[in-house]
Design a protein around this nucleic acid. Structure first.
Length: 542
DNA sequence: CCCTTGGGTAAGGGTAATATAATGTC
DNA sequence: TGACATTATATTACCCTTACCCAAGG
């Protein structure tokens, strides 16, 4: 979208509710009012923009293709009809209003030609659901949705689930489940501590499969404790599989699937039954080992090569689907001896996709196109200074849909801290973490960043701003510095080069700080109160 | 007594992300 | 040869659907 060196020469025209402006490096920013993004649908709309006047010769036009998210009507003339009040719309899908727990109910809807979404909820769906809930709660002068969900009687919340399901192409029951999960504060408690595991084992002995009771005693949701129990058998090995175990797994799978050894099996077996036969592994372990390794090994598969990453992207592009959920991984996996299973291929795609910083926010076809382009040109994803980076495009696209674009001045880095070992050498309250400062420029950890006081393993976010250095508080007063520079092609973006950590002083525990690939780092916008931080000095740009 | 409404439960297939082991590479 | 860096494998918290159950009200 950049017009290159001609900074102020383009006149922009705004059409309908879309406003165009230009930022400092000449990029054109498209502003859509927030409610528009709500009412667009998965229909693809192509907008052609024409520069009205430009110092460069001739008119230039370019296309922006964007995919939007929720339901809308687009007339043949391409005009978007917005429904201001969702409740008044007559187009309510029977799917989201039907409870259908029985097979007959479901079949009736299917026979009438109705289709609905299954699988993981997209960000757009969750946003819509949340906003529906907010609207419902506000309309009733309440504050906390949890009140309705967990405290009200069925009578009192009569129309609640149907109201919040509005606009979602999911069965009401699916909406109901999701809402419960979302607002149940015993559902996202995190990792089970060893004490919890012990207590869970006891409770299991006592209450059997009464998950609700066990959950209540443990402060966890019923499904959480049920799932945790599925992971542990009384006689469960961990770590590397022995040859004997692998053989038992193969035998079991082939026997239960009823196929000859050596044939590919990627589903249709009961993993609980397999685990029973294997004896020393849980159903999850069996499934994962089989689908990610043994199935492929047994059927004589070949190694996956690097350039097949691109082949995969090509094959996905060829399918020309609008939504990632429409991909049929069984079909994609066909005819490839290096593919271990459809599930494995899907995870391969994930690892490719995740190299793009903002992949979650990108429309599917934009992501695909960007990936294809970069991979074909052999541009390392998330490249260093000077290299074209999808992240920059992503950020621009993001700004297109944001009503208030602001300069990007900071990085958000997920930082994992893992306890490696404890040497037990006394206590310490003077730990210092220092990061290598090699060249270029140092970035600073903002005071808003804090680690858990005990240094508990987990994921934290480091928020950095340019050109400062401050101590941060761990158990005492450690210092963290990172090396980074801004990109010459895009000064507002900072590229991190290295982050290594050493702990000096009296330490009771060795801390390992792991950071995911550089490409995962996402530029973020600093909150206004931090806007007074010094900008990136010109000298640092390399 | 049956049917409908509005839930509710357990089981099991699955995903996404982290943790850890293995394997380069300098 | 040892310290990192990278990749592969293992684990796990959480998600979603299916198939069935239940109780109150009409």
């Amino acid at each position: 979208m950049s017009t290159g060196e001609d900074e102020d020469s383009v006149t922009l025209e705004s059409v309908n509710s879309v406003t165009l402006t230009q930022d400092s490096d000449g990029s054109i920013i498209l502003h859509c009012p927030p409610h528009v993004t709500h009412t667009l649908s998965s229909t693809r709309c192509v907008c052609t923009f024409v520069c009205v006047s430009s110092v460069s010769e001739g008119d230039e036009s370019f296309e922006v293709t964007m995919t939007a998210t929720a339901d809308s009507d687009i007339t043949e003339e391409g005009e978007i009809l917005q429904s201001e009040d969702p409740q008044n719309s007559e187009e309510i899908s029977p799917v989201s209003q039907a409870w259908f727990t029985t097979k007959e109910d479901k079949d009736t809807l299917v026979n009438k030609g109705h289709k609905w979404k299954q699988g993981m909820w997209s960000k757009e769906e969750i946003d819509l659901l949340m906003s529906n809930i907010q609207q419902y709660v506000k309309g009733r002068g309440m504050e906390d949705p949890a009140e309705i969900i967990f405290e009200m009687s069925k009578e009192e919340r009569k129309d609640f689930y149907r109201s919040v399901a509005w606009g979602l192409n999911r069965p009401l029951f699916a909406v109901y489940r999701r809402v419960l999960r979302m607002y149940d504060n015993r559902n996202h408690v995190g990792k089970y501590s060893p004490e919890e595991i012990n207590k869970l084992k006891e409770l299991r002995q006592k209450h059997g499969n009464d998950w609700a009771t066990i959950g209540a005693a443990l402060g966890r949701s019923a499904s959480s404790v049920k799932d945790r129990c599925r992971l542990m058998k009384d006689t469960c090995n961990t770590g590397k599989w022995s040859e004997e175990e692998e053989r038992r797994l193969s035998d079991s799978v082939y026997a239960l699937a009823g196929v000859c050894p050596g044939r590919a099996v990627t589903g249709g077996v009961s993993w609980a039954a397999v685990a029973d036969l294997v004896g020393t592994r849980s159903e999850k372990q069996c499934r994962s080992k089989w689908l990610n390794y043994l199935n492929w090994k047994q059927s004589g598969g070949t190694e996956w090569t690097k350039d097949q990453d691109l082949s995969l992207v090509h094959r996905i592009v060829e399918l020309d689907v609008d939504d990632e959920n429409e991909l049929k991984w069984e079909e994609l996996a066909g005819g490839w001896s290096s593919v271990r299973s459809p599930q494995w291929l899907r995870s391969k795609w994930w690892s490719i996709k995740r190299q793009v910083a903002n992949h979650k926010e990108l429309p599917f076809h934009v992501l695909l196109k960007g990936l294809q382009e970069l991979m074909e040109n052999q541009v390392p994803l998330g490249a260093g200074p000077g290299s074209p980076s999808l992240q920059i495009r992503v950020t621009r696209l993001e700004e297109c849909c944001s009503s208030t674009p602001r300069p990007v001045t900071a990085l958000q880095i997920p930082l994992q801290i893992t306890h490696l070992a404890s040497d037990g050498a006394g206590t310490s309250d003077t730990e210092t973490i220092t990061l290598n400062t090699a060249a270029l420029q140092t970035l600073q950890i903002l005071p808003s960043f804090h680690l858990h006081p005990t240094g508990t393993p987990g994921t934290y976010f480091l928020q950095t701003a340019a050109n400062q250095s401050l101590p941060l508080s761990l158990s005492s007063n450690p210092t963290v510095t990172l090396t980074a520079s801004s990109s010459p092609s895009s000064p507002e973006h900072i590229i991190l080069h290295s982050l290594s950590v050493s702990v000096v002083g009296l330490v009771t525990e060795r801390l390992q700080v792991r950071i995911p690939k550089l490409t995962k780092y996402k530029s973020v916008v600093l909150p206004p109160e931090q806007g007074s931080l010094p900008p990136v000095p010109p000298g640092g740009r390399h």
